[in-house]
């Protein structure tokens, strides 16, 4: 079986000898490298090679000429400029950040709460049922979620509004008013992914050393104390890790959900970068613009993930 030799002592070696030694070590672990190969191949084929398509962000992409032969955009930042000059640019950016921020906050705290409840619950069968039920909605598509939202929240026929009207109130336009739409958006998203998000926290909790709990109990800590001083610190690095990852995709506020649920009345609070790109870029065959915006998003995401990782180092939850 493969074993892991001690690190190389490189300081005192001539170069050629060093190289030979490295090759020898690689050869000695060739099986491991071979097993690594599929993963590396996957990333090269599906993630790195397609990146040359980014070129069309700087070209006037023409379907028939293909990526290489399409003419360069003049000036090269033409498509970026078109995006930045849209009167809706700042609104799109604000909406994207806000929705994504809300989703991050509401996607984290309740999930941790649910994970804590399941973790602390002492009835095994109840835990299992609750866990299964709570992560089931994750597998529903947003079209179905929207259907459910209509059934409950529609102004004329929704269940909630029927109660409101029966109780003598006026129907509340949950799905068509700028005041409620983001809450509905975030609410349905939280409902969908609550149990799913809790799984990873649960896994982290179950890996906490049980002796810590015993020690805390002997020291006289009650259940809440144990949660506060043992469980939460135990999963702190996982929480931070997930947050860092989420910050990297801060400009993805969930295209699918919003595209299905929005309408003209709520555009000012619901239109995000991705839905704009879909309308302006893809529906009008402007692939260059769509790519340029995608590239812009990726760059922002990259910067954000670097910054947040740096920040996370302070709490020891950094990615690298």
């Amino acid at each position: 079986m493969a074993h892991f030799p001690a690190p190389l002592n490189t300081a005192a070696m001539p170069k050629s000898a060093y190289r030979a030694k490295v090759w020898k070590r690689i050869w000695s672990m060739r099986i491991l490298y071979l097993m690594l190969l599929p993963g590396v191949a996957y990333y090269i084929i599906y993630k790195y090679i397609p990146m040359y398509g980014v070129l069309i962000a700087f070209k006037d992409y023409d379907i028939l000429s293909g990526i290489v032969r399409s003419p360069w955009a003049d000036p090269w930042y033409k498509h970026f400029q078109f995006f930045f000059e849209s009167p809706y640019f700042s609104q799109l950016l604000t909406n994207t950040f806000l929705i994504s921020l809300y989703k991050t906050i509401w996607g984290t705290i309740p999930a941790i709460g649910v994970a804590l409840l399941i973790h602390e619950g002492r009835s095994l069968w109840l835990n299992r049922i609750v866990q299964t039920l709570s992560y089931m909605p994750h597998f529903l598509s947003y079209v179905i979620i929207y259907g459910i939202a209509i059934a409950f929240l529609s102004e004329t026929s929704g269940l909630v509004n029927r109660w409101v009207v029966e109780a003598g109130g006026n129907g509340i336009p949950f799905l068509t008013s700028t005041a409620y739409f983001r809450s509905v958006l975030v609410g349905t998203d939280v409902w969908k992914d609550l149990g799913w998000g809790a799984i990873i926290y649960l896994a982290a909790m179950s890996s906490i050393d049980a002796t810590l709990y015993e020690a805390a109990r002997i020291d006289g800590a009650g259940r809440l104390r144990r949660i506060w001083h043992v469980t939460l610190p135990g999963i702190r690095s996982v929480i931070i890790l997930l947050l860092v990852l989420k910050v990297g995709s801060a400009l993805d506020a969930g295209f699918e959900q919003i595209y299905i649920m929005y309408n003209l009345q709520v555009m000012p609070v619901a239109d995000i970068i991705d839905t704009w790109v879909f309308r302006v870029g893809l529906e009008q065959l402007n692939f260059s613009l769509a790519t340029a915006v995608g590239l812009f998003k990726s760059l922002i995401g990259l910067v954000l993930i670097f910054l947040s990782n740096k920040l996370a180092r302070r709490w020891g939850g950094n990615l690298w």
Partner: peptide
């Protein structure tokens, strides 16, 4: 031992080949 070693190697080759084929 010798016998066992071959399995991951073969597996890796098959996986890689499959991936390349499906891509190209």
């Amino acid at each position: 031992m010798k016998h066992k070693k071959r399995i991951p190697a073969v597996l890796a080759c098959v996986l890689t080949a499959g991936l390349l084929l499906s891509a190209c």
